[in-house]
Computed example of a mutant assay.
Amino acid sequence: MTTAPAHRQPWRLGPRGQWWFDIALATALVTPAALTPLTDPGWTGLVISLAQLVPLYWRRHHPVAVFAVVALASAAQAALIDTPMWSQVAFPLAVYSVARYASAAWGLAAVGVGLCGAVVAAIRWVLGFGGNLEPDPVIAYVVTIATIVVTAWALGALARTRRAYVDALVERGERIEREAAQQVALAASDERARIAREMHDVVAHGLSTIVVQADGARYAARRDPAVAADTLATISATGREALQEMRRMLGLLRTGDSADLLPQPGLADLAGLVVGTSVDATLPDPATSVPDGIGLTAYRIVQEALTNVRKHAGPDVRVRVDVTVDDEVTVLVEDDGRGAAAPDDGHGLGLLGMRERVTAHGGDLEAGPRPGGGFRVRARLPR
């Protein structure tokens, strides 16, 4: 029996739908067989008809066993009844079920039994209808029955092959999705570990020096204030050097460029991002004071959101940028384009990078399609 993939396609029946379909099909075939006692086969024909049709209720879950019962009942019909009956429709359905839900070997065995049965049935029917056992009528019956059997087997084998192919594609897609997610997680983890190592190497030495110098200045201030002043100057220089090295290191991690870095951007630099006739911007006063980290985060959110608009929103897009500063800094960037956003790449960029930046400051980020089309990014950063 073929198992369903993890993500069922909408055009496939689920387990409950398959169950109801099998019941409806078997019931529709069994119902006309109730009239068999009124025909020439009589009550013997009714028993044989039920033996052929009733197993179809279980054809999906036990295809080989169902085919064996139907084949034996069909052999009993050939031995006891010399005319065709309605219930013989069960045989091609049983062949189809074996080819569809069992292995290819069982499918070939079923079609082989069906071809042999075609010869027996043809001879039995020719004699039953009072005809002479001549080649022409026998061949006609054999070809007709064999065509039905082979067609049922071919349809079942084709459906089984197609199902296996689709399941393989679905499994491959899920595997690729899992691998991509793992790669993103590993890349993000490697980036964080790298930043942690670099931060330790750059900052730890400077902070250790500052602590030692501060302890020395505290004791020296009692005896010689001049020594304390020199020590404080050393602390200041060491702190500036450590800060400069940290900024340079972070710049290398982000860009790989060893050139001297400009000061980190903030709210005052937003105007340079929104230059363009298709951007409707509402920005705070450049002189507005917010913590450097908050200003940098707001700048990066606007920068990344506008980058996503240029890459994915399509042509002739109108963009609205609204940055307000009150008890908190709110950032809104929305467009009326196709509504696609850049995927996370695991290196602090894209939506993942924006969300991590906002979360680090105790804020929250909302990103997704907006009503009426387009994409919206909204961030809240407590001051």
Rank of each mutant, 00 (worst) to 15 (best):
T2Q: 06
L13K: 07
P15N: 10
F21M: 14
T44C: 10
L46M: 15
L53C: 06
R59C: 12
H62L: 14
F67L: 15
A68R: 04
V70F: 05
L72H: 07
A76S: 12
L80D: 06
D82L: 03
T83Q: 05
V89C: 14
A105V: 07
L108E: 09
A109C: 11
G112D: 02
V113A: 15
G114S: 14
A118P: 00
V120E: 01
L127C: 05
G130C: 06
E134C: 01
D136W: 08
Y141V: 03
V143G: 01
T144V: 11
V150K: 00
T151F: 09
T161F: 09
Y165P: 00
Y165R: 11
A168G: 10
A168I: 06
V170C: 04
E171T: 10
R172Q: 14
E174M: 09
E177M: 01
E177D: 02
R178D: 08
A185I: 03
I195V: 08
E198W: 10
V202T: 09
A204I: 00
G206Y: 02
I210Y: 06
V211Y: 05
A214M: 03
G216I: 08
V227F: 00
A229D: 11
A233T: 07
T234Y: 01
R247V: 15
L261T: 15
D280C: 07
L283T: 02
P284Q: 05
P286H: 04
A287M: 00
V290E: 00
D292I: 05
I294N: 01
G295C: 12
T297W: 06
A298Q: 12
R300E: 15
V302H: 11
K311Y: 10
G314S: 08
D316A: 14
D327P: 01
L332W: 06
L332T: 07
L332Y: 03
V333F: 05
E334C: 04
G339L: 13
A341V: 14
A341I: 10
G348W: 13
L349A: 03
L349S: 04
L351Y: 12
R355E: 14
A360Q: 11
G362P: 15
G362H: 05
P369Q: 12
F375D: 03
R376W: 09
V377E: 04
R383W: 09
